[in-house]
């Protein structure tokens, strides 16, 4: 405390705006206070075991809001009725799962008892395949372009990254405005001699646009990761290749692609995991419609558990357990792939 008083006197004496730094004084006082309060604890536990105290708040939040819900989720999945409290819910075994899988023909959702669930599964499958492949190709193209020696590189990089920062609601509204009947895109189409397209009222178009806007919104993030991967490739390799007379395509195939593979794996799996979970952007954009055209897995879970007339918590939880299984498989695949990649190199 004595030390902190000194700069205060100095600054009041001199007219220069040397900050008295009240924050520093406050902070030091705060440290002293914590020090006093925690001293008995440290005497009791010893230095090394203080780590438990430091890690405790984080673990508590994890435990209460992630681990506990995970366990509860399993309990919901195996119990029935529309009661929210687990104690009120009778155990029904795997009935919820059986109901989800009650289908006379798995390729036709109309024959399933929970037809919306299967529609959501089909929608999600198509979304994941198309969105991830399109996005990875676009992100790689952009990263390659940004990795060249070009002017305004920092500017272009920020431009491609900017949409990542926008919230799902904002992204949805920006595009809804462009795609509406009298919107900018229809104006362009009409001026080129076409007729207006009801983009968000047509099931196929709505699916296409959900994919396009999610690529628009996320691409910059993956571009950035790929760009970091590209920049980590030593330039000597390219110099040596060009000295040996290798063509640009040959050095791309034999240097860039193999050395970028670990980064690509990370990007691919992160993109897959995100695509399986698509939800945030769709709610304000199409809210799953028209009909169920853009209802994906999470939307199904959300609707079943939160917005439908009868709250089928058990069905929703069973569906989310299935989704968790998919996500774990993907994560596990990533670990295996990255490890395999490390062994090779």
């Amino acid at each position: 405390m004595n030390r902190t008083a000194a700069p205060l006197e100095k600054s009041t004496a001199s007219p220069t705006p040397q900050s008295p730094n009240f924050i520093q004084i406050l902070f030091n006082g705060f440290v002293d206070l914590i020090d006093r309060l925690m001293a008995p604890l440290q005497n009791l536990l010893g230095v090394q075991r203080m780590a438990y105290i430091f890690v405790l708040p984080n673990l508590l939040i994890f435990g209460i809001f992630i681990i506990l819900p995970m366990i509860l989720n399993l309990s919901y999945a195996f119990t029935g009725s529309t009661q929210l409290f687990p104690a009120d819910r009778p155990f029904i075994g795997a009935d919820n799962f059986a109901r989800l899988f009650e289908c006379s023909n798995f390729l036709d959702p109309n024959t399933c008892r929970e037809d919306v669930f299967w529609r959501a599964v089909f929608n999600s499958t198509i979304f994941v395949i198309v969105q991830v492949s399109f996005m990875v190709v676009m992100a790689l193209t952009t990263a390659l372009a940004l990795n060249r020696k070009i002017m305004l590189r920092a500017f272009f990089r920020s431009v491609f990254f900017y949409p990542v920062l926008l919230s799902p609601v904002v992204v949805a509204l920006i595009w809804k405005w462009i795609l509406q009947q009298d919107g900018l895109l229809n104006a362009v189409i009409v001026s080129l001699g076409g007729t207006r397209v009801p983009f968000l009222l047509n099931a196929e178009w709505a699916r296409v646009w959900v994919i396009l806007i999610s690529v628009w919104a996320q691409m910059g993030f993956f571009t950035l990761i790929l760009l970091a991967g590209l920049q980590a490739i030593p330039s000597e390799l390219y110099e040596a290749a060009s000295m040996d007379g290798a063509s640009a395509w040959a050095s791309f195939r034999n240097i860039t692609l193999p050395l970028l593979m670990p980064t690509m794996t990370v990007v691919l799996v992160l993109a897959l995991i995100r695509a399986v979970q698509v939800f945030d952007q769709v709610v304000p954009f199409t809210n799953g419609g028209p009909g169920t055209a853009t209802t994906y897995m999470v939307q199904y879970i959300y609707n079943t558990g939160f917005t439908n007339q009868t709250r089928e918590y058990g069905i929703a939880a069973a569906a989310s357990v299935l989704m968790a299984l998919i996500l774990f498989t993907l994560t596990f695949a990533q670990l295996r792939l990255t490890r395999a990649g490390q062994n090779e190199s």
């Binding site: 984080n58 994890f62 209460i64 809001f65 992630i66 681990i67 506990l68 819900p69 995970m70 366990i71 509860l72 989720n73 919901y76 929210l84 409290f85 687990p86 995991i273 979970q277 939800f279 999470v298 879970i301 959300y302 558990g305 939160f306 918590y313 929703a316 939880a317 989310s320 989704m323 968790a324 996500l327 774990f328 994560t331």
Partner: peptide, 19 residues
């Protein structure tokens, strides 16, 4: 801690709401 990276909120919506 690291493995919870892979558990998205969307998977545990209902129990989180209960908690």
């Amino acid at each position: 801690t690291i493995s919870t990276l892979m558990i998205p909120l969307s998977v545990i919506l209902i129990p989180v709401f209960l908690v």
